[in-house]
Design a protein around this nucleic acid. Structure first.
Length: 412
RNA sequence: GGAGGCUUCGCCUAGUCCGGUCUAUGGCGCCGCACUGCUAAUGCGGUUUGGGUUAAUCGCCCAUCCGGGGUUCAAAUCCCCGAGCCUCCGCCA
């Protein structure tokens, strides 16, 4: 939710932001009108309440006034109904307003993303095999059996694949030691409200798996839980930093035929998420700190990567400013998104009713949602650290967490 | 699945039986001031949140006692539905 007072004060500033998103169809005037209606009805209602309260006070000792008081109450009830309807209309409309965009966000689609840190690619003409072939060779990935079990866009991760995931988990914890993160493993089933609060609903209605005969859906990221679990709270101090540990579930609606092979775009994957609440004046520094964590981790996996500022078309509705880190996938000679790091300003905390006191004033804290690592990192690691015989050299940083092993060898 | 208890403005709490200055009590914490020759003690005052009014402050007004609905001139208080927490029993990884 954006700040409606700020919107009313300068609608054109918001319209410019919408234009950059290509979202001119959003009904700004309708929201402003609905807001005025609510304000006006509220004032009328309050005036009636004053009269009603006064009359009630006197009616306590004077039965003759009770008929009159009853009449006033009925008027009040009627006005209350209209006020409630006006509020509902305002909420329904306002929930469709995306966040403002930072001035630094380039207008356009994916092709307009701005590279702010270039990758250092290996100077070689050797050929690389795609990560899924390497993984199958190592016997750590089984997509055929996953298809029998669950269908397409799933994988069974086995043996050293699971160990790699656990090793990465431990390495990540050690690398961000001292930064004040609390490790949290939240539920992956959440109520509708949680998806609304985090800004996924109503925009991305079809992205999540619902549970039949239940209000619950599977979360696409622990971000949704780490936000909603603090709904309606006043946070005593900032920043609050979490590492969210969870499986993530996504329908991948609208991505038919893209990345159907391997581990890149699936219905279920593991992710360790960096999620934090902070004061507005510390958001820039923390945003960069999260980015540094991501890059340092990917570097530690010996995976070349570049950092980009995402263009307007690549920033989801609740986002204000987003960095992506893209890993080099040498088999296809292409960069693919590995991590995503968004400053969401107070958009989510407004929706969730999360506040904090800064200099004695109640304000909505800012949130940052940034990937720590996820299963895609395994794919990037395998593809970039493969050897010609199909084995994979374990990056040095990971070796202590894999019993000192230096190489993962193909089976049979 | 069964039975019972609980939910009050940061935390704890009075008030609910029997509706009416409840305009919600007190303590802790916090803030301000005063005092004391120390960042101790004490005293006085303030301290829910959201909205409205205002250029803004002060003030004033409206709402707010887990959520929703109902009864009533009037609801923290009575009735109904729901949520959450707790205890005991049952069942079960």
């Amino acid at each position: 939710m954006i700040d409606l007072k700020k919107l009313a004060a300068d609608p054109d500033a918001y319209r410019r932001s919408l234009a950059k998103r290509g979202a001119e169809s959003v009904d700004v005037d309708g929201v402003l009108k609905a807001q005025q209606d609510v304000t006006q009805l509220t004032q009328e209602y309050e005036q009636l309440r004053v009269q009603s309260k006064e009359l009630t006070r006197r009616a306590a000792r004077d039965e003759a006034l009770r008929a009159q008081a009853r009449d006033l109450r009925d008027q009040q009830t009627e006005l209350e109904t209209r006020l409630r309807q006006a509020r509902e209309e305002l909420n329904a409309k306002a929930s469709w307003l995306p966040n403002y965009l930072d001035d630094r966000v380039p207008a356009g689609d994916e092709s307009d993303n701005t590279v702010i840190r270039a990758a250092v690619l290996p100077d070689t003409d050797r050929t690389y095999r795609p990560h899924d072939e390497i993984a199958q060779g190592l016997g750590i990935l089984d997509t055929e059996r996953a298809a029998k079990l669950s269908g397409s866009r799933f994988y069974v991760l086995k043996g050293d694949g699971v160990r790699l995931r656990m090793a990465m988990f431990q390495l990540y914890l050690d690398m961000v030691e001292g930064q004040g993160f609390e490790l949290v493993s939240p539920p992956v089933l959440a109520k509708r409200f949680s998806f609304y609060a985090s800004g996924y609903l109503p925009f991305a209605q079809s992205d999540n798996f619902g549970i039949a005969d239940s209000e619950l859906s599977l979360t696409g990221t622990s971000e949704q839980a780490l936000l909603a679990m603090h709904a309606d709270e006043v946070l005593p101090e900032l920043p609050v930093k979490y590492l969210g540990d969870s499986m993530c579930f996504r329908t991948e609606a609208g991505s038919h035929g893209r990345d159907v092979r391997g581990m890149m775009r699936v219905h279920q994957f593991y992710k360790l998420e960096q999620f934090l609440y902070c004061a507005p004046d510390e958001v820039e520094a923390l945003h960069l700190q999260m980015l540094d964590n991501e890059v340092a981790f990917i570097d530690a996996l010996n995976v070349p990567s570049q950092t980009i500022i995402c263009s307007s078309g690549d920033v989801a509705a609740p986002g204000f400013f987003k960095y992506d880190v893209e890993a080099w996938f040498p088999a296809n000679q292409t960069f693919r998104e590995l991590t995503s790091n968004t400053n969401l300003t107070d958009y989510q905390t407004r929706r969730a009713g999360i506040r904090t006191r800064i200099d004695g004033k109640m304000v909505h804290p800012y949130t940052i949602s940034a990937t720590g690592f996820c299963d895609r990192h395994i794919a990037a690691l395998l593809e970039n650290n493969q050897n010609d015989d199909g084995s994979v050299t374990v990056p040095e940083a990971l070796r202590p967490y894999l019993g000192g092993r230096e190489v993962l060898r193909p089976v049979g």
